[in-house]
């Protein structure tokens, strides 16, 4: 009898692995990019279809190979976002890893996004937050008058984790002392 070979989508997926001589990261990550079409409603479906995965990496060197070729957030125009999430987590509230979570949001005056984004993602990739597996990913959102960076975590009810993320953000971003930081749960954002 002929045997049918089933390829599950799970096994078909490409998982990034560190190359020989490269420095592995604690987690694999994926870069995503999204750009909102002006005038379109931001429904879940249009959000998902607007978001494009750029690629995944597993080592420090692979990260730089992506990042060095990417446009800096400060040079983006229009309503655009870069997302850097752990491989397997979609940068959406609806993802299982995110649905009970929340995010720290920092609004930045124009001109600061590129430097802050780089410092944020280097801290995340280097495991500087020290909150176990709580971090899901980070986003930089380029808007008309200001830019926004955010870092998402799994458990919005975990006060110790949220405090630790905030303190690490203050340290690694070297923000002006009057910078306002706001924590939002994703269930609040949906409302």
């Amino acid at each position: 009898a002929k045997k049918k070979v089933c390829v599950s989508p799970k096994y078909n997926a490409t998982i990034a692995v560190p190359g020989v001589g490269e420095h592995p990261l604690q987690y694999n990550y994926s870069f995503w990019y999204s750009r909102r079409t002006p005038g379109r409603p931001a429904s879940t479906q249009s959000y998902e279809s607007n978001i494009k995965q750029i690629g995944s990496f597993a080592s420090v060197e692979q990260f730089w190979r992506f990042y060095s070729h990417m446009i800096r957030p400060g040079d983006l125009t229009g309503h655009s976002d870069f997302h850097l999430f752990k491989e397997g987590i979609k940068p959406m509230w609806e993802d299982d890893a995110n649905k009970l979570g929340g995010k720290w949001i920092i609004r930045l005056r124009k001109g600061l996004a590129s430097r802050c984004w780089e410092n944020l993602i280097l801290a995340m990739l280097g495991e500087q937050f020290m909150v176990g597996g709580e971090i899901c990913g980070a986003v930089v959102s380029v808007r008309f008058q200001e830019d926004i960076i955010s870092i998402w975590n799994k458990t919005a009810s975990d006060q110790a984790t949220i405090t630790r993320i905030r303190d690490t953000l203050r340290r690694v971003l070297n923000l002006p002392p009057n910078t306002i930081m706001e924590y939002k749960t994703h269930t609040d954002s949906i409302k």
Binding site: H23, P24, Q26, E61, R65, S68, N119, L122, E127
Partner: peptide, 21 residues
């Protein structure tokens, strides 16, 4: 368990490695 921690300075140094190009 053990976690792989890198500081900013080390990550930036890796950028100039031939493997990062």
């Amino acid at each position: 368990g053990t976690r792989i921690i890198y500081d900013r300075k080390f990550l930036l140094e890796c950028r100039s490695s031939p493997l990062a190009r």
